[in-house]
Computed example of a mutant assay.
Amino acid sequence: MRYLMTTAANGSAPDEKLFAEMGKFIEELTASGVLLATGGLDPDSILVSSSGEEITVTDGPFAEAKEAVAGFALVEVRSREEAVELARPFRRIVGDGESRLQQVFTS
């Protein structure tokens, strides 16, 4: 099972301690084979919407900074519960805020 974990910006700038702890966490997940991809996201997004034959392109940002998705991790785990357990140490490292887990369905 693959899960995409996204996290919203918490409004504070990361410090060296956070970078060190997160680097160690990412190394552990990579070595275990669980982490497939990770990265930060630019808050300026592009919205592409359709209605019938009309395609509209709108430049962002669209959410308040505290609501914008700041980063993601794609993990491969055996269960929903395992995905939640991976999110717990991540949230402890980054502090207050929210992360969202969504199962990724592949063909």
Rank of each mutant, 00 (worst) to 15 (best):
A83C: 06
V48H: 07
L4D: 09
T6C: 10
G23R: 14
R100F: 05
R80N: 10
R80Y: 07
V57A: 03
R100I: 05
P61D: 11
F105W: 09
M5A: 06
F19W: 14
F72W: 02
A20S: 15
Y3T: 04
S99G: 09
S49A: 14
T7I: 10
V77M: 00
D96I: 01
S49R: 15
F19S: 07
V48E: 06
T6N: 06
N10I: 11
A68F: 03
A87P: 01
V84I: 15
S79C: 07
G40H: 13
R78K: 15
E21T: 04
A8S: 12
M5V: 06
E16C: 04
D59M: 01
V75E: 02
L4F: 05
R78G: 15
E64H: 12
R88M: 04
E82A: 05
G40Q: 15
L36N: 06
L35D: 04
E16P: 01
T6W: 01
T58I: 14
D15L: 03
L86I: 11
Y3W: 09
A70S: 13
A65Q: 14
E53R: 15
E98M: 08
A73F: 11
A63K: 12
G11E: 11
K17F: 01
S12N: 12
V77I: 02
V75K: 06
I55P: 00
Q102R: 15
S79I: 02
T7D: 07
S49W: 06
D42E: 13
G23E: 13
S51C: 10
M22W: 13
V77K: 02
R91N: 09
D96Q: 12
I93T: 06
A8T: 14
T38H: 14
D44T: 13
T106H: 08
T6P: 00
E28F: 00
P61W: 13
D59G: 03
T7Q: 11
P89K: 05
F62W: 08
V57W: 02
I46E: 06
L4N: 08
A63V: 04
L18W: 09
F72T: 04
F105M: 02
A13Q: 15
V77Y: 00
G39R: 11
G60Q: 12
L101T: 07
V69I: 15
E76P: 03
Y3Q: 06
G60A: 10
V94S: 07
L74D: 04
F72K: 07
F90V: 01
S12C: 02
L35F: 02
Q103H: 08
F105Q: 04
I26M: 05
P14M: 05
E81S: 11
F90M: 01
R2I: 02
F105N: 07
E64V: 03
V94T: 12
K17C: 00
K24E: 14
T7F: 13
A13L: 10
E54F: 02
P14L: 06
P14F: 11
V104I: 12
E82Y: 05
A31W: 03
E27F: 01
M22L: 14
A37H: 15
P61Y: 12
A9I: 04
G52T: 13
E76C: 01
Y3C: 00
A13P: 08
T38W: 08
V104D: 04
V104P: 00
P89H: 08
E98Y: 13
S79H: 08
G97R: 12
S32L: 01
F19Q: 13
G33I: 10
L4Y: 07
M5K: 07
T106N: 03
V48F: 01
Y3E: 04
V77P: 03
G52V: 13
K24Y: 04
K24S: 09
